[in-house]
Design a protein around this nucleic acid. Structure first.
Lengths: 223, 223
DNA sequence: GTCTATAGCGTGATAGAC
DNA sequence: GTCTATCACGCTATAGAC
């Protein structure tokens, strides 16, 4: 009895914390805010969590592990015979869909991960790191299969891809023009095919010229 | 006399604030931290700034206006005859170089922009918005010139590109394998040419199949 | 113009009633 | 197990010495 109901309330507090952290950030969110959102009182939280730091740590864990787990499982469940490019596409689409579905825990994660005390962040780093390696491996395997060009560093490519998705959290809500799925279409086309017009592909030779034109950035501060 | 020296100290305080905000965030950074870094005392700051909010607002402005101004100027100074793709390349390379040069003000901006009170963020939004429009216009012009494919939404493309660059702030320091310029090379190749191996380009047809395989994301929370 | 003392407030956390 | 009262602390901001 006791454990069952207590666990429910614990979950309720965690959900409330995610919601509050999501739009106030870590420092600005008070335990009173969380308690009100959860329908209880600040002092009562201490029966379920030892400290604010413990609470936020659990929110962080829920925020990352879910996306990482679901994407990983999805990929693992695909038939072995599937093409590597198709596999990458599915993974990217799944990731984007999960990242943008506006889950309080995932959103809270991106809002506060850079705000929590350094030791918490360090202790929590393993999940995102493993997820990053998972993406790097997907790219490497596609390269090994000869389906993705091998002259680009797999780690950089994976980080650029994830970066685009993550930043989308900041602007996606502004525009009702595209669904998550349409957004994924654009990102996939852009990623695999590039943005150059095919006929103008020889223009790419000019990239080298472009490079030489950039001088070292001025160190002068804005005045 | 008075104004000259006072202005110098003001600048010193701003630089100190950028440095402190950069690695403590907004709420966690105290005026005492800033004062110590600037070689003065917390109370003294109030001779130069009316409040902590005023101080952070000026740091934010310095953080964005510099990158936006330098990239915009660089592009404006290019010969009119230059190809649109080359122009885009130069802009992207300049942006990346500035964003990653680890200027305290720019880094502080990305660290704290999501932490400051909403009214400050709203008041400060004009510079980033104008910069976003600038990028969208670059893409649109390249599309109009027939150098970039026109079937991708210019706004989305520009946001994806900026997203990759911004996220690079989070991981670029970890790896000494590439210089900023080499990173820009990879991003440019990826962006313009795509990551598919040319010979495997017909695999792109499978993207449609990939799409249909993704079921709606489960709403179940991690347990 | 710059520093010191301190007011005033809100926070995380605790102790103990019930 | 849950709520209430309260402590101790650190913060922004101010007032006034010099």
């Amino acid at each position: 009895m006791k454990t069952r109901k207590a666990a429910q309330k614990r979950d309720k507090i965690l959900a409330a914390a995610a919601k509050v952290f999501k739009h106030k950030g870590y420092a600005e969110a008070t335990l009173n805010d969380v308690a009100l959102e959860a329908g209880t009182f600040a002092g009562s939280l201490y029966y379920y969590f030892a400290s604010k730091e413990d609470l936020v740590e659990e929110v962080l864990n829920l925020g990352t592990s879910r996306v990482a787990r679901l994407v990983t499982e999805k990929v693992a469940a695909l038939p072995k015979t599937i093409g590597k490019v198709e596999l990458l596409s599915i993974a990217l689409r799944t990731h984007l869909a999960l990242a943008l579905e506006r889950d309080d825990f995932a959103l809270a994660y991106w809002k506060i991960i850079d705000q929590v005390p350094a030791d918490i962040r360090a202790r929590h780093a393993s999940v995102p790191r493993a997820y990053g390696r998972f993406w790097k491996r997907l790219i490497e395997q596609a390269q090994a299969a000869g389906e993705v060009r091998a002259d680009l560093d797999a780690r950089i490519v994976s980080l650029m891809l994830l970066g685009s998705s993550i930043y989308a959290l900041n602007w996606f809500h502004e525009s009702g023009r595209y669904s998550v799925d349409e957004l994924a279409d654009i990102l996939l086309k852009m990623t695999f095919e590039g943005i150059s017009k095919a006929e103008a592909a020889d223009n790419i030779a000019t990239l080298k010229t472009a490079k030489s034109r950039v001088s070292a950035p001025s160190r002068r501060r804005a005045d």
